[in-house]
């Protein structure tokens, strides 16, 4: 190995070591993934109901959205948002009479990218869950005289959530993997920090290896957690 520092020196806590920047990067990764994931699930639910609804225009738009976002590489979506959001926002603002310059930071672009992609995948998950609910459940709440919205919220949605949980776990793992791509638009998440550390110390293998282990642990922990929640909800 070249470079004098041992592995212990590299990862020591304090000004000389890289533990603190790595932890900051990890926090950015987790924050970006979780905010984007939650937004994506809300949007995905809306897209799923647009697809299931009676309005054929909305249904067509939702189908185009999911086909596009699932058929195109996430990296391309990130580039679209990175180069496109500033222009789009300024165009909207000009409509309201504001002519100044607007800039969106990399974190917002990252959250939006994760949200749009997870919305496309989670809408398919929700649609599958909706299709798996027995028809009798719909007839039952109608027979009880519940209005459709109330019935959907109190009868159908809780069952949908339970059926959708395994799929939503996969979407979460996809979202976390997608955040690594945000390093290309210079968001200071884990991959970016690791790359910087590798270049500065001349030991890229150590740092990329560390990143691999961190992601492995994160993803293993998440799938454990989702399995545990699934097991709990089975008899709820």
């Amino acid at each position: 190995m070249n470079g004098g520092a041992s592995i212990v020196d590299l990862f020591i806590w304090g000004s000389g070591g890289w533990s603190r920047p790595l932890l900051t990067g990890l926090c950015v990764t987790v924050a970006c993934a979780s905010i984007g994931y939650v937004l994506g699930i809300v949007l995905g639910l809306a897209v799923a109901f647009a697809k299931l609804g009676r309005n054929s225009w909305l249904a067509a738009a939702a189908t185009v959205y999911t086909t596009l976002l699932r058929g195109v590489p996430p990296l391309l979506v990130i580039f679209l948002l990175f180069f496109g959001t500033n222009g789009a926002l300024m165009w909207i603002a000009r409509g309201f009479g504001y002519a100044g310059y607007i800039e969106v930071d990399a974190f917002t672009v990252g959250v939006l990218a994760v949200a749009f992609v997870s919305a496309a995948y989670s809408s398919e998950v929700f649609r599958g869950a909706h299709a798996a609910i027995p028809k009798g459940q719909f007839e039952a709440f109608a027979a009880l005289g519940l209005p459709p919205v109330v019935g959907l919220w109190t009868v159908i949605m809780p069952q949908m959530l339970r059926l959708a949980l395994p799929g939503l776990g996969n979407v979460w793992i996809l979202a976390m993997k997608e955040t690594t791509l945000l390093s290309v638009i210079s968001l200071a998440e884990l991959m970016r920090v690791v790359g910087l550390a590798g270049r500065t110390t001349g030991q890229p293998f150590v740092f990329y290896g560390a990143a691999a282990i961190i992601y492995l642990v994160l993803i293993a922990m998440s799938s454990r957690a989702f399995k545990a929640v699934e097991a709990r909800m089975r008899w709820a």
Partner: peptide, 23 residues
């Protein structure tokens, strides 16, 4: 297990940038 639960970008970087560390 390892290749399914690490992001592909990390795998590419370990191979391309990481291995060049060793003489």
């Amino acid at each position: 297990l390892v290749f399914r639960s690490t992001p592909l970008l990390v795998q590419i970087f370990v191979l391309y940038y990481g291995l060049s560390q060793f003489a």
